Amino acid sequence: MTTATARVRTAAAAAGLVGALALTACSGGGSEDDSSPSSGATPTSTSSGGAVTGASDKLQGSWITTSKGSIVALVITGKQAGLFATGGTVCSGAAGTESGMQMIHLSCTDGSKDRVTGMVETVDKGAMKVTWSGKLGQETYTRAEGGKLPSGLPTAPLKQ
């Protein structure tokens, strides 16, 4: 397979993933206020025994990265988080402030432990760095606006 073909396949897979995320994010059926954090948010219990309150406005939205030949999308709405990766990994959980830090806690349907607990190191309007516990370490995500792929997304060969 040529490099151009690999890039087209990567872009097509990412576009499909972002489209699926957009549909998932819109299927809540709640009011528009559901996605914005409130100062009186009820804490969500985490597997580590702590409590997560609503995520900051900077964390809200769709984020995408590539890792080990897979496209990974992380969506944060209010204090809810979802992660989807090519290859079938689907995770859900909570994101928000915990003990003064921005944290993400996920549980994956395939039993994956790669992205169970993540600490947001930095976040701005275009990028977010998350350090995951365990061997995966730090990943840098790029914000995906309006269901579109971010510019400059790195390409990697797809797993065959």
Rank of each mutant, 00 (worst) to 15 (best):
M1C: 08
T2S: 11
T3C: 11
A4Y: 09
T5D: 09
T5G: 04
T5S: 06
A6W: 02
T10A: 13
A11I: 15
A12I: 05
A12T: 12
A13S: 07
A13F: 00
A14Y: 06
L17M: 08
V18R: 02
V18G: 03
G19C: 10
A20L: 14
L21Y: 00
A22T: 10
C26E: 15
C26Q: 13
C26K: 13
S27I: 09
G28R: 05
G30F: 01
S31Q: 08
E32W: 10
E32A: 13
D34S: 12
S35F: 03
S36F: 06
S39N: 12
S39I: 14
G40V: 12
G40D: 10
P43W: 05
P43C: 12
T44S: 05
S45A: 11
T46S: 07
S48I: 08
G49F: 03
G49Q: 02
V52K: 00
T53L: 11
G54Y: 01
S56H: 05
D57S: 13
K58E: 15
L59K: 01
Q60C: 01
G61K: 00
G61Y: 01
S62E: 10
I64T: 08
K68M: 01
G69M: 00
I71Q: 04
I71S: 03
V72Y: 03
A73C: 12
L74K: 01
K79Q: 13
K79I: 09
K79G: 12
Q80R: 09
A81Q: 00
L83T: 06
T86S: 09
T86R: 04
G87K: 12
G87A: 14
G88D: 12
T89A: 14
V90R: 06
C91Q: 01
C91F: 01
C91S: 02
C91T: 01
G93Q: 05
G96K: 01
T97D: 13
T97E: 11
T97A: 14
G100M: 09
M101A: 09
M101K: 07
M103H: 13
S107N: 05
S107P: 00
C108G: 06
T109Y: 14
D110V: 02
D110S: 05
D110N: 08
S112M: 03
D114K: 14
D114E: 12
T117A: 11
T117E: 11
T117P: 02
G118Y: 00
M119C: 06
V120S: 02
K125E: 13
G126R: 14
G126H: 15
G126T: 14
A127D: 03
M128P: 09
V130G: 02
W132Q: 10
S133T: 13
S133N: 14
G134C: 06
G134W: 08
L136Y: 03
Q138V: 06
E139V: 12
E139I: 10
T140G: 03
T140N: 03
T142N: 11
R143F: 04
E145A: 12
K148D: 05
L149T: 07
L149P: 10
P150A: 02
S151K: 07
G152Q: 15
L153M: 07
A156D: 08
